[in-house]
Each structure stands twice: as structure tokens, then as C-alpha cells.
Amino acid sequence: MSFVIATTIDEAIAALAAGARPVAGGSDLVVGARHGKAPLPGDLVAIDRIEELRCLEFTDAGACIGAGVNHHTIEHHPVLSTVYTGISDGSALVGSPSTRNVGTLGGNVMNASPAMDTGAPLVVLGAEVELRSASGSRRVGLAELWTGPGRTSARPDELCVAIHVPAPAARSNSAYLRLEYRRSMEIAVVGAAASVTLADDGSVNAVRVALTAVAPTIIEVAGLGGGTVADVAAAAQAAAAEQARPISDVRASDAYRRHTVGVMARRAVEAAARRALGEPVSVPVNRAIGIGAAS
């Protein structure tokens, strides 16, 4: 049983190589242990004091979001919440204010829950995670990273140090929204993110849609093409409902999930398109357009 507080990425990687598991905000690891999901690992390395993990850089290539950046920061960041807007939509919905202050993007991504709120927007924005170990760094796409609920392709000695998001094209934007039964301390019943790039005439040139909590991992909707916003939104709704593989559980039946994930996909496309046109749709979309009601 050991607990190491790392202050540099190298220290953290060394601890991982020796068998420790990382803990940042603890909002998944500790809660999961208390609920008997998985016992708390015997050896832990705290990574919440590593300043390098909180880097936030924007270049022509895109954004580099340190794995230790918390949801509160992502929700309110002036660039993320206007250019990489879907990610901010997702972060803004996580837990409660206190959860958002301790929970990190790296933790959310590596926890690999199919219900995570930041996963679908990262997928539609083409994000990659940067995994680092003693033997070097590699970048992995999210579809390759997530292998099942709570499972990733990362090796135990690898630390997620950053999430790289390509710069969105001109006249494009993104949105994420979820079906929720209450406004705080909630988990997505289903959710959908869309990234939309518009042509000069306002029609959709390119669209990506990803779905939350309807499969063992976040999944991207296949086979979507361009067209008017209305047509693309309708196509996204139909394709999302068709491609979803939802389960029935205490939160919702499979039939209800299949229907509502389509609704979320349509609304995500519509909200992303409005943002791409320059209309203000505030973060998070759930409050801006209201799921069930205006805010």
C-alpha cells in the first residue's frame, strides 16, 4: 500500500511503471471504490499537483488540453466554450459545481464510461489522447482507445497527459446535449454530440455525430452526408436511432433510449449548425434550448 504525490509527469510515469494507478480528482476512482465497483488500488500516484498536466495551448493545428484540466475550467474557458464548444457543453453537465472543480478531462476520458459527457464531443471533433510512458509518447484516437465500458487500450504504465483536438474548420462548430431527468448530479440517459461545417450557402458540408450511453462505448454515427441543416438533422436522427445498441435498465428501456438518442442527435446537429452560423447558443445546450423547458 503506497501513496505517492507526483509533481512532474516523469515522477508519475515512474510510479506507474512500478505498478501504481493514477488518481487526479478521485471523482470516479474513489466513488467507484465506495460503491464496490472496484477496490481502491493498493498503490496510488496522485497526479493532481502536476502543473504540466494543466496546460492549455492553442495553435493553428488545434487545442492541447492537459489531462488535469478540470471541467469547471473547460466550461468557462473563452476559447474552448466558443470554438470547441461541444466539449464545454459536456463539461458543464458533469455532476455538480464541486464535481466539476475536481473532475478532470483526462479522468473522464480514461474512465471510459459510455455515459461520459465529454466523450461524444471529443469524438466528433476528432480528438486524440496522448499517452506517455517511460518508453515514449504515442497518440491514440478515441475509437481505438475505448475498448469497452471502463476499458481502454492504454497499457498500465501509460499516463494520459493531454487531449489533442484539431482546429475546427471555418464556418463550423459543435454541440453536445443529453437526456437528463434532473439538472444536477445527473448521468446521461442518452446523449449526442455533433460537429457541423457549413458551406457558404448555409447548407451542411460535413457533419459528424457521436452517441452517448447507447453502446458499450461512445460510438460515432456512420453514413452521414451533407445537405440542408433540416435534412442532415433528420438523417442524423434516423441514423442515430438505427445504429444505437442500447440496453434496458433502471434508467430507461432500450426502445426509449433508441428514440431519444435520435432526438438528441437531431438537436445536436441543429444547435451546432446555429453556432456555426454565428448564432449565440450558450453553454450548455441543455440549458440554452432546454430539454423539457426553456431555462
Binding site: 431527468y181 434532473r182 439538472r183 444536477s184 434508467r251
Partner: peptide
């Protein structure tokens, strides 16, 4: 949002605050 769900064996399916949904201040 608040209702107990039973399984076929008469055991509670949502005996936890995530699945038994109280209203929050935000609501």
C-alpha cells in the same frame, strides 16, 4: 422522478441516490 423499482424477486433496483432521483436545487 422518485419511485422505487422492484425486480422479479421483489428486490429494489434503484436503492442509490444516482438511480433514485431526488430533485436538486438546480431543479
Amino acid at each position: 422522478t422518485e419511485g422505487t423499482r422492484y425486480d422479479d424477486e421483489a428486490k429494489q433496483r434503484n436503492a442509490a441516490l444516482l438511480e433514485y432521483k431526488l430533485q436538486t436545487c438546480a431543479d
